[in-house]
Design a protein around this nucleic acid. Structure first.
Lengths: 145, 145
DNA sequence: AAATAAACCACCAAGACAGTAGGTTGGTAG
DNA sequence: CTACCAACCTACTGTCTTGGTGGTTTATTT
């Protein structure tokens, strides 16, 4: 599994906020109600998103969450970088990876690197704006051809 | 993490056997010695590979493991299909996935499907023969351009 | 029969995953 | 000022996967 529910929920929540299309603060309860996911669990995720500046939260009555920038400014890669420990397909490509002794002779490393680049490029090309509901909701697929 | 050590070790072991280039049975002890990985752990993996016909094992003196076909006949996808529970990047695309109620309205599913296809195509295009040591050991990269 | 090597079975520690529970802080409305 | 509300924080939990280890059994060759 490359992407955990944490990452997937994060994306869904951000899409949900983006689709409200008002600059008001949206209550978490409403979001998780619409998305049918656990409010308590998503609370943790929102704290993560808030701390990393992807979202802005306001306490108390009339409070909730709001995007900090335009949906087109959210690359999926940016979101996943926050929620996922690592997006590397294999352990040896992780940031904290101890330099493998067999690196020079490794037959498989080029393959993993190629895959890694492919996945990263994929997530760097897609933004929140590509995923929100609209008439042509496969635009990001077209733009890749 | 998309690919566990189980899958990576499996590929490395198969490459190792392929590179011996003799049709003799290769002792696991020699393989894990060269690859510097745990023999005990790889035992489990070999049983898996053997049961799935990727490799042929023979007990006793003079025994060991042997490939059952030409390296070019081993797609990386075939190997990983055996060792990894799932190659799906997300849970909702797994074989045993309960049909998601929100499928029709899901904004993210097309993206996951696209990613899934991309990864599968990647692993279907590469074979063991592409990974064994040779003069031009980036042939599979070139062939993708 | 002895040596050898795969195969089988059972167990284990650490960590990730997907939550849950309950309390605290800070902002708004009346 | 008080009540309310919603984000925020800390801690805990059960389940599963990962990456092993140990010991025994089965099959083959010498």
């Amino acid at each position: 599994m490359l992407i955990s529910t944490r990452g997937r929920y994060a994306i869904r929540v951000l899409i949900d906020i983006a689709e409200q299309a008002s600059n008001d603060f949206i209550r978490l309860k409403d979001i998780t109600g619409r998305q049918e996911i656990s409010q308590k669990y998503v609370e943790n995720i929102m704290t993560l998103l808030s701390k990393n500046g992807l979202v802005e939260g306001v306490h108390g009555k009339g409070g909730g969450y709001r995007l900090t920038r335009d949906p087109s400014e959210y690359k999926i890669a940016d979101i996943l970088k926050v929620t996922e420990e690592s997006l590397s397909p294999v352990a040896c490509l992780e940031c904290n990876a101890q330099p493998c002794k067999r690196l020079a002779e490794c037959r498989t490393l080029p393959m993993w690197r190629e895959l890694n680049d492919m996945v990263n490029n994929f997530f760097n090309r897609i933004t929140l704006a590509d995923l929100v509901k609209k008439d042509d909701n496969v635009s990001y697929l077209n733009s890749m051809l």
